[in-house]
Amino acid sequence: MRKELPLLSIVVPCCNEEAVLDETTKELTEIMSNLVTEERIRPDSVILFVDDGSKDRTWAIIEQKTKINPFVQGLKLSRNFGHQGALVAGIETAGKFSDCVISIDADLQDDVHAIYEFIDKYHEGCDIVYGVRDKRETDTFFKRNTALAFYGLMNKMGVKLVPNHADYRLMSKRAILEFEKYKEENIFLRGIIPLLGFKTARVYYNRKERFAGESKYPLKKMIAFAIDGVTSFSIVPIKMVTWLGFFLVMIGAGIAVYSIAVWLLDHTISGWTSLILSIWIVGGMQLIAIGVIGEYIGKIFKETKRRPRYSVEISTMDELKIKETVGHE
């Protein structure tokens, strides 16, 4: 059990979210005010909006709110680093002065009222609290079932994820310090956080409709995200390519035996159909194999460069809280 009141930071990554910022700020401010009144967090707790290279008025709105809302602070990245990069920037920045950090998307699909239970679990001694979707009725049939298929696939490949958990979670300072030891550029938070260990808990909530604006994760990005997750944590795809190669060799050996037998029996066959099919099938398999191996080589190439995962252009944070330049490996 923790007795001291924690300084809580809520990290909210934003990319072209001007349509939802007013309502998001309103709801999170209400949550923070209630927690302070109930003496469950410190009064100097923070809502940290991270602008991930927005092209609309997102940053202008954040700056305005920092002047009128005592909870709100802002972090503007120098360009778009992607959702995971923005989350890492916010978590590492807030982790410098916070006792615990909660990350949540700006679209209000994740129930903000679950934060009360997050804080309860933190006071009980949990270092990581996962927000887990109890129901996905607001998702389309396709999205709901592809998500379940993804979690099942990752589990079979040896990657231990929390099913129906996105990036709505609480992390204690101890967990954040441990997380900062993971320096890879190809970051996949849903896979890394369970590796940290420590005492964890789950809070279940119902996912809601997006308050306004458009989803930042269309099908193309969802597929890319899934590929990143698989290739960042598992070499099973390369093993599958190896076994596929053995399988094709066995088929080739069978075709060779069959061809010799036909030749010895002096049967006349044209062979064009089987030849063309073999070329296309084997050629396609080879391209897939090269693509899978290339994906891993590409990740190795990026990692060897050791480039920063994000860069900060502007920060409204108090200099007493952040004493060093943000934007490290």
Rank of each mutant, 00 (worst) to 15 (best):
S103G: 08
E137M: 10
Q109H: 04
Q84I: 09
K239M: 09
W243Q: 11
L195M: 15
M250I: 13
F179N: 02
K121I: 01
L189C: 12
A19I: 07
V20Y: 03
T273K: 14
R307W: 15
R202H: 14
K323S: 10
G191R: 02
T138D: 09
I322M: 12
F233S: 07
M285R: 04
V101K: 00
G327D: 05
L248W: 06
F71L: 03
H328I: 10
I223T: 13
K121G: 06
A147R: 13
D105S: 13
L21P: 01
K65M: 06
K143A: 15
V46A: 05
V257C: 13
V292W: 00
I104L: 11
G197P: 05
V282Q: 04
T66M: 03
F225G: 06
Y258Q: 10
E39V: 07
N80D: 10
Y130Q: 02
L264Q: 12
A106K: 00
F188Q: 07
D127R: 05
I293T: 14
G294F: 05
P6N: 05
M157W: 02
D99P: 02
G294P: 00
R307T: 11
I193N: 03
Y116K: 00
I293Q: 11
N69I: 02
S78T: 07
D56K: 01
I300F: 13
I104R: 01
P70D: 05
S270V: 12
C14L: 02
A19R: 08
Y217G: 10
L5P: 00
G294H: 01
K323Y: 06
H165V: 02
E27M: 07
H83I: 10
F141M: 13
K239L: 13
Y205G: 07
T268Y: 13
L21R: 02
R210A: 13
I279Y: 10
G283W: 06
I227E: 05
G191Q: 06
D167P: 03
R79K: 15
G213F: 09
K3W: 10
L87N: 13
L153F: 11
G191I: 03
I62R: 00
Y217A: 15
E313F: 08
D110T: 12
I104K: 01
R57Y: 08
Y204C: 07
D167N: 15
W59H: 00
H328F: 15
